[in-house]
């Protein structure tokens, strides 16, 4: 069974989960609240429509709402399935374990796309009040890429969650370790000796370029490369650990 079939299996399951629905509601409520507060406190002309969209996504990431949601969904899809036995049911089908891990990862990627692009769409509707600059149409591809960078940041955390979940069935331990990984990555970013190789610093570099800073193609490739190395590396480790793991429950 190929990755595509497993991804479809995981996606149709994920989008029926109550936790996934609750996550969508929380994120969109926070998005609406932030937009309404801005509506009430910032008169027309004092704010840019583009800013409300990027600020809204950035705020949800800074408040750890997006990383926490990504970790919760990822930890649920492994730990809860393991303790309930549904992972055992899946592993007794003719499907490779690394395909299961990749399928789950892609399903969560689609879910995070829905979340982040959903925030962008809701913010866009509110942002009409403040209006957009004349070159907004040409900025849309950049805006979509900005959303993608935020999604990739969270997908690194998801891949790390899969590594932790291969060693424990405790959802609390997995979630704590994964959020801890994200917080430590934020702290490490402040150390100039290693910041070049942290995924968060490279994501920030990309965001600054996309928001209108000086664009250097080489630097952009480097940053994208580092983020993908994190994702692929962590997924490989997770797949290797899962391959060797006994399914006891």
């Amino acid at each position: 069974m190929n990755v595509y079939r497993v991804m479809r299996f995981e996606t149709s399951k994920l989008f029926r989960q109550k936790a996934a629905h609750a996550g969508l509601i929380v994120v969109f409520l926070v998005c609406c609240m932030y937009s309404v507060i801005n509506w009430m406190t910032r008169p027309v002309g004092s704010y840019s429509g583009i800013m409300i969209i990027t600020d809204n996504i950035s705020l949800q990431n800074s408040l750890l709402i997006l990383p926490f949601l990504a970790v919760l969904i990822a930890a649920t899809s492994i730990c809860v399935e393991q303790s309930s036995g549904t992972l055992r049911t899946l592993f007794t089908r003719p499907v490779k374990r690394d395909n299961v891990i990749t399928g789950k990862f892609l399903a969560i990627f689609l879910y995070m796309c829905l979340i982040v692009y959903g925030i962008a769409l809701i913010s866009f509707l509110f942002a009409i009040r403040w209006g957009f600059p004349e070159d907004f149409i040409s900025f849309i591809p950049r805006l979509l890429l900005i959303c993608l960078v935020y999604i990739l940041i969270n997908m690194v955390v998801v891949a790390f969650t899969f590594v932790v979940a291969s060693q424990t069935t405790s959802i609390a331990l997995t979630a704590l370790a994964s959020i801890g990984f994200y917080v430590i990555s934020m702290l490490v970013e402040f150390f100039s000796q290693v910041q070049t190789y942290t995924f968060l610093n490279n994501a920030q570099t990309l965001l600054q370029m996309l928001l209108g800073g000086p664009f250097e193609l080489r630097s952009a490739y480097f940053s994208v490369g580092i983020i993908f190395i994190y994702i692929v590396g962590l997924l490989l480790i997770a797949s290797l650990l899962w391959e060797k793991r006994d399914i006891m429950s």
Binding site: K13, R16, Q17, K18, S84, G85, T86, R88, T89, T92, R93
Partner: peptide, 13 residues
């Protein structure tokens, strides 16, 4: 085709 241990399915479905 396998059924190993107690059958486990998605409870809310």
């Amino acid at each position: 085709g396998c059924m190993v241990g107690e059958p486990a399915f998605y409870q809310d479905l």
